[in-house]
């Protein structure tokens, strides 16, 4: 469906995308995850034909892409991060307009099914400006689906959308996937990415890892421990300063952290006793994609302090 080889793109001295490789198969749902400024949007814009790469090869639908012809464009649906609807037009008018742009002469049936699909039917006569954020996002998606593309590129479609609408949105995406469409979506939320068929982790323009969520988690050469303690705050401060503990996270009365596979829990217990700190439980828990990503980032930049990776994480 889509093969990307050695993609490079710079804006002046800033390298937005460097030696980026990616493949998407039919009916695949791929999440491209990374912090803000990782180059996700730029990658998507290149794949949508909005930006010209400095070098690299793109193969779409089995053919090498030289220029994005309008024939090619009609097979791709791209939803930009800030898709702008015509606020003074109604939901239905917006859909009709985009259908017309793509040469749909009688889009009534299609629009009806899209309205049903996105559950926007009851609001079809409402002006787009009067919709809630989640509904606007669904309408934007519907507008990019109106020409029935085979490959759908979504740039952070769930950012700033409430949890209920986000769930709705995912249901729509899953049913699109079942219909045989391929989806490439960027998101800063790692817990969301775990639902994708494959996850691409990206940082500073580079692809750090690209695999199924299960394999990515299995590839983690460490274990995640969770410590339950009424003094979690003090312990958290203590662990943060120690290089042996990666990705230390404070969650209420729990502290989660990543250690190497060989790490002996007794060492921690002993040091806590030495410092007169008490705990209720210390056990291994199953790692998440977040742990994998933080581990990979640490490996790339070992000099980085704990906890300064901003713009990434789970939101729930």
């Amino acid at each position: 469906m889509l093969i990307v080889k050695n993609l490079n793109k710079s804006f002046g001295p800033f390298k937005a995308v460097s030696n980026f490789n990616l493949t998407i198969g039919r009916e695949e749902f791929i999440c491209l995850v990374g912090p803000d400024g990782a180059g996700k949007s730029t990658t998507l814009r290149i794949l949508a034909g909005l930006e010209k790469p400095d070098s690299g090869e793109i193969e779409l639908f089995g053919k090498k892409v030289v220029t994005f012809t309008s024939g090619l464009r009609t097979r791709i649906g791209y939803l930009p991060q800030n898709f702008s609807l015509y606020g003074d037009l109604t939901v239905e008018e917006n859909l009709k307009f985009f259908a017309g742009l793509y040469g749909q002469h009688s889009p009534e049936e299609l629009i009806k099914s899209l309205l049903e699909f996105t559950r926007l039917g009851p609001f079809k006569d409402r002006q787009a400006d009067q919709l809630s954020g989640g509904m606007k996002q669904k309408l934007s998606l519907a507008c990019t689906l109106v020409h029935q593309p085979e490959l759908i590129l979504l740039d952070e479609p769930t950012t700033g959308v409430d949890p209920v609408s986000r769930r709705d949105f995912w249901q729509i995406l899953f049913s699109l996937q079942r219909e045989g469409k391929s989806i490439l979506m960027t998101t800063p939320y790692l817990d969301e990415a775990e639902r994708a068929t494959r996850v691409a982790l990206m940082n500073q323009g580079q692809l750090l890892a690209f695999d199924t969520p299960e394999k990515l988690i299995a590839s983690l050469p460490g274990k995640v421990l969770e410590l339950v303690s009424p003094e979690s705050r003090v312990i958290y401060q203590h662990l943060k300063t120690d290089r042996a503990f990666l990705d230390v996270q404070l969650r209420g009365d729990r502290v989660d952290f990543l250690v190497s596979k060989e790490y002996q829990e007794e060492i921690l217990k002993k040091s806590l006793v030495d410092k007169n700190l008490s705990w209720e439980d210390l056990a291994e828990i199953s790692p998440s994609l977040e742990n994998v990503f933080i581990y990979l980032l640490k490996k790339e930049n070992p000099g980085r302090e704990n906890g300064d990776i901003n713009g990434i994480g789970s939101h729930s």
């Binding site: 909005l50 930009p80 898709f83 702008s84 015509y86 985009f98 742009l101 793509y102 020409h147």
Partner: peptide, 14 residues
């Protein structure tokens, strides 16, 4: 200004 131009240019509209 509103960003709708980019969507128009992405479409087959010339």
């Amino acid at each position: 200004e509103k960003g709708t131009m980019e969507q128009l240019l992405l479409s087959p509209l010339r």
